[in-house]
Lab assay of single mutants.
Amino acid sequence: TFTSYQLEELEKVFQKTHYPDVYAREQLAMRTDLTEARVQVWFQNRRA
């Protein structure tokens, strides 16, 4: 599960791009204290 802060950050990036590159995902992962893999999976699920 994600915190409301994490979801907010993820959604913010999703609004800009549905396909963030690895750099964007790593920045987001650091900001949200998630792994890059978790961020990647979240985007895959969000796009589905």
Rank of each mutant, 00 (worst) to 15 (best):
T1Q: 12
T1S: 12
F2D: 01
F2N: 02
F2I: 08
F2Y: 12
T3N: 08
T3W: 06
T3P: 02
T3H: 06
S4A: 14
S4N: 10
S4C: 12
Y5V: 07
Y5P: 04
Y5T: 07
Y5E: 08
Y5K: 10
Y5H: 07
Q6H: 02
Q6A: 05
Q6L: 02
L7N: 11
L7V: 10
L7G: 03
L7T: 08
E8N: 09
E8L: 10
E8S: 10
E9A: 06
L10S: 00
L10D: 00
L10G: 00
E11W: 04
E11Y: 05
E11L: 05
K12A: 10
K12Y: 06
K12P: 01
V13I: 09
V13N: 02
F14T: 00
F14D: 06
F14M: 01
F14L: 02
F14N: 12
Q15A: 14
Q15E: 10
Q15H: 08
Q15K: 10
Q15R: 11
K16E: 15
K16M: 14
K16L: 13
K16W: 12
T17C: 12
T17D: 11
T17I: 06
H18N: 09
H18A: 12
H18T: 07
H18L: 05
Y19K: 03
Y19I: 04
Y19S: 05
Y19R: 04
Y19Q: 14
Y19P: 15
Y19A: 04
Y19D: 05
P20M: 04
P20S: 01
P20H: 03
P20F: 03
D21F: 15
D21H: 05
D21R: 04
D21Q: 04
D21V: 03
D21T: 08
V22M: 11
V22D: 09
V22R: 15
V22W: 11
V22I: 13
V22S: 12
Y23A: 11
Y23E: 10
Y23K: 13
Y23S: 11
Y23M: 11
Y23P: 05
A24T: 15
A24D: 10
A24N: 06
R25Y: 07
E26Q: 14
E26F: 12
E26S: 10
E26D: 06
Q27V: 09
Q27H: 08
Q27I: 10
Q27F: 13
Q27K: 09
Q27Y: 07
L28F: 07
L28K: 00
L28S: 01
L28I: 08
A29C: 10
A29W: 04
A29E: 03
A29F: 04
M30N: 12
M30A: 11
M30P: 00
R31M: 10
T32Q: 02
T32C: 12
T32K: 00
D33I: 07
D33P: 10
D33Y: 07
L34S: 05
L34A: 03
L34E: 01
L34W: 13
T35A: 05
T35R: 03
T35E: 06
T35P: 07
E36G: 05
E36I: 10
E36C: 06
E36P: 12
A37K: 09
A37F: 10
A37Y: 12
A37W: 14
A37E: 14
R38I: 15
R38A: 15
R38W: 11
R38F: 11
R38E: 15
R38P: 01
V39S: 09
V39N: 01
V39M: 10
Q40Y: 13
Q40C: 13
Q40V: 10
V41D: 15
V41W: 15
V41Q: 15
V41F: 13
W42Y: 03
W42G: 00
F43H: 00
F43R: 01
Q44S: 11
Q44K: 12
Q44I: 11
N45W: 13
N45I: 10
N45G: 07
N45A: 12
N45P: 01
R46P: 01
R46H: 03
R46S: 03
R46Q: 05
R46E: 03
R46D: 01
R47K: 03
R47G: 03
A48I: 11
A48L: 13
A48K: 12
A48V: 09
